Computed example of a mutant assay.
Amino acid sequence: MTASSTELAQPGSDTAQPTARGWLVLLVAGIFEIGYAVSVGGSKGFTNLNWSLSAGVFFFLTVFTLTVALKYLDVGIGYAVWTGIGASGAAVASAVIFDQPLTTARVLWLAVIIAGVVWIKLASSPKHAEQA
């Protein structure tokens, strides 16, 4: 028998802590996703050995930590947040590492992604779930 995220997040229950842990692990998975995306870009089609090895390591780490996080969070919410962190983080990291342009329009749309991730997190909070 499995519990939904609303059951896991009940304040004062023994399972509220694992839900918080799930969000923390999901954040780490998102950071690993950024590393994977940047490494794939640096590998130049997996022709650069060091970047390719880095991509392999980050791929394993991001999938593993995402899997752990999804033990505590709904798949749809977890995946949306994970991809949002990865997409926005990879765009910023690529601008810094590879000197790729970060235009005003890109920053605006990255802000929309980040706002969406925050909104999803807030909407899945235990307090909001009780009101729904």
Results as ranks from 00 to 15, higher is better:
73 L>I: 06
61 L>Q: 09
57 V>R: 12
117 V>E: 04
123 A>I: 00
75 V>Q: 09
126 P>W: 07
51 W>G: 01
72 Y>R: 13
59 F>Q: 10
61 L>F: 11
116 G>C: 09
110 L>Q: 09
7 E>C: 08
121 K>A: 12
61 L>Y: 06
71 K>E: 04
1 M>N: 09
82 W>G: 00
48 N>L: 11
129 A>W: 10
126 P>Q: 04
112 V>F: 12
37 A>M: 13
132 A>S: 06
35 G>K: 12
105 A>N: 04
107 V>R: 13
45 G>Y: 08
40 V>M: 06
53 L>M: 14
55 A>I: 03
123 A>T: 01
51 W>N: 01
36 Y>V: 00
42 G>R: 09
47 T>Y: 03
73 L>R: 08
130 E>W: 07
29 A>T: 02
99 D>V: 11
43 S>P: 08
85 I>N: 04
83 T>Y: 11
103 T>L: 11
11 P>K: 15
47 T>I: 05
54 S>Q: 04
124 S>M: 07
25 V>N: 08
130 E>T: 07
36 Y>F: 14
1 M>T: 05
84 G>P: 08
49 L>A: 09
132 A>C: 05
19 T>N: 12
89 G>K: 12
47 T>D: 03
37 A>I: 12
130 E>S: 11
47 T>H: 15
52 S>M: 02
94 S>K: 10
24 L>T: 03
115 A>F: 11
2 T>L: 10
